[in-house]
Amino acid sequence: MEIDGSSIGKRVGGALYVHQSAMDCLLLEQSRPIAAAAEHVPKGNWNVAKIDLADYRAVSLLNYEDFAEHAFPALRQSHRVDLGTGVVTVRRYQTNPPILHRKELLLAPDAPGRDVYLALTRELERRGLFVDMTRRGRQHAWEAALAEAGIEVRDHRVVASRTTRGSFDDC
């Protein structure tokens, strides 16, 4: 399968996010700075790269929870590498971390699980959950939005929340 590297990844503002497993799908001008940044970070400490598309000098290597296990992985740690100076800035996220939505966009089209992730995104879009995402980008706000909608996500599937089910059981 031929993959156009310009269509791989999730674009947010002027940045491109891509999963480590899709690095071979990127254009060389995108993968080279990521590989250079990875030399500044302990091996195994990242699974998503964020690259500034304006100048390719700022690369963040992000360590999210496991994609297969978590429908909306939380960011645990980031290493921002300035390729011009070699300075690495590390941030750890423990309380109310950023949450990754639409994770299928970060993967190659033939990545394992991608169809399941895409189906979940489409179902939540249908339910109107992906509106005002600037406010729902962190764990607490995302969980509150799901609760307000009366749903939970389990095994990458939308189910009625326990609270909602309990109220229906009483009817």
Rank of each mutant, 00 (worst) to 15 (best):
2 E>I: 11
2 E>W: 08
2 E>S: 13
4 D>M: 02
5 G>Q: 08
11 R>W: 02
11 R>N: 03
14 G>K: 15
16 L>I: 01
18 V>G: 09
19 H>I: 06
20 Q>C: 11
21 S>W: 04
22 A>C: 02
24 D>N: 08
24 D>M: 06
25 C>D: 11
25 C>G: 02
28 L>Q: 08
28 L>G: 06
30 Q>F: 08
32 R>K: 10
35 A>H: 06
36 A>W: 11
38 A>W: 00
39 E>H: 14
39 E>P: 00
41 V>D: 02
43 K>R: 10
45 N>A: 09
46 W>T: 01
48 V>H: 11
49 A>V: 04
49 A>P: 05
52 D>T: 04
54 A>I: 15
54 A>S: 05
55 D>A: 07
55 D>F: 03
57 R>Y: 01
58 A>Q: 14
63 N>V: 01
67 F>P: 10
67 F>V: 11
68 A>N: 07
69 E>R: 06
70 H>Y: 14
73 P>F: 11
76 R>H: 04
77 Q>W: 03
77 Q>G: 05
78 S>E: 13
84 G>E: 12
86 G>W: 14
86 G>Y: 15
95 T>Q: 14
98 P>T: 04
101 H>N: 04
101 H>W: 09
103 K>T: 08
103 K>I: 07
103 K>E: 14
106 L>M: 13
109 P>A: 14
110 D>M: 00
110 D>W: 04
110 D>L: 01
119 A>I: 12
119 A>G: 07
120 L>E: 02
120 L>I: 12
122 R>E: 13
123 E>V: 07
125 E>Q: 08
125 E>P: 00
126 R>C: 10
127 R>S: 03
128 G>R: 05
128 G>K: 06
128 G>A: 05
133 M>C: 14
134 T>H: 14
137 G>V: 01
139 Q>C: 04
140 H>E: 15
143 E>G: 00
146 L>V: 03
149 A>M: 10
151 I>P: 02
151 I>T: 08
153 V>K: 04
156 H>E: 07
157 R>P: 01
157 R>N: 11
159 V>K: 06
160 A>V: 12
162 R>C: 08
168 F>Y: 14
171 C>I: 15
